[in-house]
Amino acid sequence: MRTIIKYVSLDLLRNKTILIYTALLAAISIGVLNMDDNTSKGLLSLMNITLLFVPLISILFATIYFFNSIEFIELLLAQPIKRNKVLLAEYAGLVLSLCAAYAVGVGLPLVILTKQMAALVLVVNGLLLTLSFCGLALLIFVLCKDKTRGIGIAIITALFFSLLFDGLLLTFIYSFSDYPIDKPIVGLVALNPIDLSRILMLLQLDVSVLMGYSGALFKKLLGSTTGSIYAVVCMLFWVAVPLIVSTVKFNKKDL
């Protein structure tokens, strides 16, 4: 398994798309951080970029990559290795290289140019988002037979989590605004890794006060360490669950 991870990530680290992705992230990060002398404003811009691009690019690139590797996966499966190991190794190799891209593109400039706790949280956020959206891509790959359809679903998934979900959440809040909905909202937010990651990031910046302004529960939950832990744990679920479902479903998949 380690062998496959090694070779897959070696292959992907020379992939043009990944190199461009890294360079683009680095250019944006350095640009944003240098433009503003106010680091927490720069961090907010970087957060917006991360929340918008990392999920989309991770899920799209990963889906395309998995579907393109189908023959290679067949070749590996013809060797005496367990199916799960091949699948997880492919995932790990991919995730390693995408995470490396993010770490170099965003993490490195942040470490050099800022010295804030929030910067670290942003990097962790970006990595967690990469992990969970690659996991979702893996699930799409396992459940879909057709590449074109898989890519379509990947785009819809990314769009759903970055836009549609919030729209539904807003509608929900609006329709039930007469009821005490603080708690359900905090629960519902856990259903979207992008929202989780946004909140986790905001909690590190002083703008989180603006959220506390709107309700006692938010103040209590989101203002404390418990809030951060809650968000991180939910994010980890978003990494683990698609992976587990993928491996279970993959055992039954025809190639």
């Binding site: 918008l52 807003l170 709107s214």
Partner: peptide, 20 residues
């Protein structure tokens, strides 16, 4: 306007949706 009417919507602060 929305946050003023329904403060709980602050949970969507700085989301892509509200920007749009």
């Amino acid at each position: 306007v929305i946050t003023e009417r329904v403060p709980v919507t602050m949970i969507l602060y700085r989301s892509f949706l509200t920007d749009i």
